[in-house]
């Protein structure tokens, strides 16, 4: 790992095809800066991307990366980290990837507390398929498939994480570049599963949850004197549906990541040229 890594080293030379003004630009910049700032470089970083607009991030960043099956980014990241505890793993996806098709994996990734970060670009809409309701869309949000709105409450991903036993829950806003980067950095540095829900507005299909909306309504927990180690206080802000919060809501000071609990510390890519030396013991066990 070299000390002179710049965030642009994490940028590929492929031009993003996101719509001009898409929140994902800001989200990605913050991710790259946070990775560089925490001493990582592209050769020791693995980015797993989901499917959807957000999933394209693997193409626009430069690192080891896999762009996989819709909804399964977290399991892939889990496998990478278990096999290679020495590698920095960051999983990125959208609200559909994480809270709809991949919701089951989200719950269990949170429970497992694998030492990686998970950045969800939440635009409260399906953008790549041109504007259908997402699991975080408002109940009255009219779309092509929900002309009168979904008529169901949006998923509260922060509460879902809390209920699943999360050790780190945060939220940021793609447009607040400095704070967004700081929060992602904290997620990376957290000993365990660092989950950040990022408000990443869709300028094409969502005219409700816009930059202006978030600018007008965002409350930064840092300014509120919020103590992220206080579980009860975290519960309160997470369940408060009247406000849009930014900041680290909850961090378990005593978080023990998966690899420590399970003693998974070896670089599994290193194996002998033949069977292990004492492998005949495995056979003798069957006497």
């Amino acid at each position: 790992m070299s000390s002179d890594v710049r965030f642009t080293d994490f940028k590929s030379d492929k031009q993003p095809t996101w719509c001009p003004g898409c929140g994902d630009f800001g989200t990605m910049n913050g991710m790259m800066k946070a990775l560089a700032e925490t001493g990582n470089d592209p050769d020791n970083t693995f980015v797993v991307a989901g499917i959807g607009c957000s999933g394209k991030i693997g193409t626009y960043m430069h690192s080891y990366a896999l762009h996989g099956v819709h909804g399964r980014a977290l399991p892939v990241g889990t496998g990478v980290k278990m096999a290679r505890p020495d590698i920095e793993v960051m999983v990125a996806g959208g609200d559909g990837d994480g809270y709809s098709i991949g919701a089951g994996h989200f719950v269990h990734a949170v429970r497992r507390n694998v030492d990686m970060s998970y950045v969800v670009m939440d635009n409260r809409i399906y953008g790549l398929t041109k504007g259908q309701a997402s699991p975080t869309s408002r109940s009255d949000f009219e779309t092509s498939t929900t002309p009168e709105g979904p008529k169901q409450p949006p998923v509260n991903p922060l509460a879902l994480a809390l209920a699943s036993g999360a050790s780190f829950i945060a939220q940021s806003f793609a447009s607040d570049a400095l704070r967004h980067q700081e929060i992602i950095q904290e997620a990376i540095e957290h000993d365990g599963f660092g989950f950040v829900n990022v408000f990443s507005p869709c300028v094409t299909f969502n005219d409700v949850d816009t930059y202006d909306y978030f600018r007008d309504n965002l409350v930064d927990l840092q300014d509120e004197g919020h103590d992220p180690n206080d579980y009860e206080a975290a519960k309160e802000v997470i369940l408060d549906s009247d406000k849009e919060y930014q900041g680290v809501m909850y961090q378990d000071e005593n978080s023990v990541p998966y690899h420590e609990k399970h003693g998974v510390t070896e670089d599994m890519s290193e194996i002998p040229d033949g069977a292990p030396d004492d492998a005949m013991d495995l056979v003798r066990e069957f006497y």
Binding site: F46, V48, Y64, L66, G68, V69, R72, P75, V76, G77, T78, G79, V80, K81, M82, A83, R84, I87, D267, M268, S269, I271
Partner: peptide, 13 residues
């Protein structure tokens, strides 16, 4: 997908 991740990380999975 976990096994796939392990394999991409270089492990025999």
């Amino acid at each position: 997908n976990m096994a796939l991740g392990g394999a991409r990380a270089g492990a025999r999975a």
